[in-house]
Design a protein around this nucleic acid. Sequence first.
DNA 1: GCGGGTTAACCGTCCAGCCGGTACAGTAGG
DNA 2: CCTACTGTACCGGCTGGACGGTTAACCCGC
Lengths: 163, 163
Amino acid sequence: MRRDELLDAAEALLQDQGAQALTLAAVAERAGVSKGGLLYHFSTKEALVKGMIERLIADFDALIEAQGESTYTRSYVAATFEAVETGRLRRWAVVTGAAGDPALLAPLREAMARWMRQGLDDEPDPPASQIVRLACEGVWEVATHCSAIVDFAAVRARLLALL
Amino acid sequence: MRRDELLDAAEALLQDQGAQALTLAAVAERAGVSKGGLLYHFSTKEALVKGMIERLIADFDALIEAQGESTYTRSYVAATFEAVETGRLRRWAVVTGAAGDPALLAPLREAMARWMRQGLDDEPDPPASQIVRLACEGVWEVATHCSAIVDFAAVRARLLALL
DNA sequence: GCGGGTTAACCGTCCAGCCGGTACAGTAGG
DNA sequence: CCTACTGTACCGGCTGGACGGTTAACCCGC
């Protein structure tokens, strides 16, 4: 699908040049498409950003699902580290793109609430699970800004030990 | 100092209207100053954003220092929760303002590296401290996007118990 | 204690450039 | 004939920044 390539181009642009560089012309050029071609798929810039967010959420939910661990928290940890280590799911990039308009972040807030709560009460030690999930947020953050600092494998092992 | 009021206005604008709303005219109006007056203190928009970042880092470092706990990690936890609960230090707002240009985030990356590493090896259980600090990052994130979801006092107690 | 000079802090307007979006004519493939 | 584009030309609004005032406080010699 060409649509996905356009979203990829937008994400790549955000990742290595920041939000100011996210212009319709730049996205089109990076994707090897004319501006008209871009606007054919996303009739407005807002739609493009919305598309990035929705894809991010759907992909991460799918990644969690695909782990098939015994608890949601375990799957969540596994999905986080897989996303972070492989560089898939450029979450930071997408968020910066959407930070221009708070309304665009609403679906992400909703998803985040789900990621923090889902299945929490069914797990052996809910408060511990809560903290593990919060730490996963920290892992996202550190991985995108200064990944050299943390030994991800060690952190992962320790997080699983907490559960 | 008038300079601080201008930074306050910029942060407030970012917090409740997003990065697109951060224009020189809007900041000036919010601060009750003319555009010329704003440009007197910050000769360019980039300087304004830089000012917000530097202030954020300095304020948070000062907050950590002011806790005077026995270890850096304990002070870090205390500072995080104080910042989050009081609503001081609108970190998310500042970051979204700077996300337009990756170069502006460099000082923040540096600071974050410090926050994750400082005094780590002097503490009883470094890996545990690492995870506690990562969880603090998560607390920032959740507090700004969906604060209703987490019982901060409980999380704080549990984090301290981990140390 | 007063004119005059200096400076810091601030005002208000103007402009050039960019960017999102439109319009439209054309085209290759299926 | 339709989908999925290309390419060009264009527009109007917004924005960053430049610039030339203006005010008020303060200092200094006399």
